[in-house]
């Protein structure tokens, strides 16, 4: 009897073991290692040297680092507004449409989401190319969308909007179906037109969903790497004008400055952490939507 109970107690651990094995080796240990590295100078060979906060200090004193912070915030803000306007208006249009139109339009609008980021970047390089790109060909111009410093970041933003709309659209569409039919009916009886209804009733009710999407998108955009790098340079070394924060980490890894790279990673964590705190303060006590589902 005792033996059997002991066996029973082991069972959950046996189920957990494989997961924890990989989780500890490839996740927990690297996290600790990375934290340790961020206070050391280590080039991948020889003995690591403890340098205190010097890695962080050096990042802060590089003007290059601040440019990447600026770029990243630019991406977060510049692509969010057009994305939300386009995807919400599309969600409204689909929501108001006949069922048959909904069945066709919904997957088509979502479709860009399933195209890999790298493939999308390749296609957008052809769209934005200076010589014989799609847009320049159409306009008969030679604008350097991918090389002109004034344009580059906007080209990245346009591609990000194209990739993000489908995701926002599906979330908004789900949100719109949640907006109570009764409220809508009441507004209709009151004689409120479509626009009045949308701005007075639908948008205020969906405020939380807007906030939620902004926070989710801000978090993933803070970590952006592929879009600016592949679109502008075709590789991992985009010009400073478009580099995101993650590029600082990647450049340092590629040059073998592992301490410096880890420090950049933890600064990135700090930013994501701040956004998460904002998320929890905003959504505390409100609907569960802010957390997992």
């Amino acid at each position: 009897m005792i033996r059997m109970q002991r066996d029973e107690k082991m069972i959950p651990y046996l189920f957990l073991f494989p997961y924890l094995f990989f989780f500890v080796i490839f996740f927990i240990y690297p996290i600790g290692f990375s934290f340790w590295l961020s206070f050391h100078k280590f080039r991948g060979y020889g003995e690591p040297v403890f340098v205190g906060l010097k890695n962080f200090y050096r990042l802060f004193s590089y003007s290059k680092f601040w440019v990447t912070v600026g770029n990243t915030f630019f991406y977060v803000i510049a692509h969010w507004l057009p994305t939300i306007v386009i995807s919400f208006s599309l969600a409204l249009a689909v929501h108001e449409s006949a069922k048959a139109v909904q069945r066709i339009a919904k997957p088509l609008i979502f479709l860009p989401q399933v195209i890999a980021t790298v493939s999308s970047a390749m296609i957008f390089r052809i769209i934005f190319a200076k010589n014989s790109g799609v847009i320049n060909n159409l306009l008969g111009t030679q604008i350097g969308f991918l090389s002109d410093p004034d344009w580059m970041r906007w080209s990245v933003v346009i591609m990000m909007v194209w990739r993000a709309v489908g995701w926002f659209f599906v979330i908004f569409l789900a949100g719109l179906t949640l907006v109570s039919k009764d409220v809508e009916e009441a507004a209709k009886i009151d004689g409120a037109g479509f626009f009045r209804r949308t701005f007075r009733i639908t948008i205020p009710i969906m405020k939380n969903i807007f906030m939620f999407t902004f926070i989710m998108e801000a978090k993933s955009t803070l970590m952006v790497f592929v879009e600016p790098n592949i679109l502008i340079s075709g590789g991992m070394s985009a010009p400073l004008r478009v580099k995101p924060i993650a590029s600082i980490l990647v450049d340092n890894v590629r040059n073998g400055y592992f301490g410096q790279a880890s420090a950049a990673g933890w600064l990135l964590f700090l930013l994501v952490f701040l956004v998460t705190i904002i998320q929890f303060t905003l959504f505390r006590g409100k609907s569960e939507r802010g957390t997992n589902k």
Binding site: P30, S34, G44, M223, F225, L249, G265
Partner: peptide, 17 residues
Amino acid sequence: ATMMIPKQVLIPPQYLM
């Protein structure tokens, strides 16, 4: 707690490992 950590943080240590 680990869900908050950007996956890029793992790159330098994983690379060395």
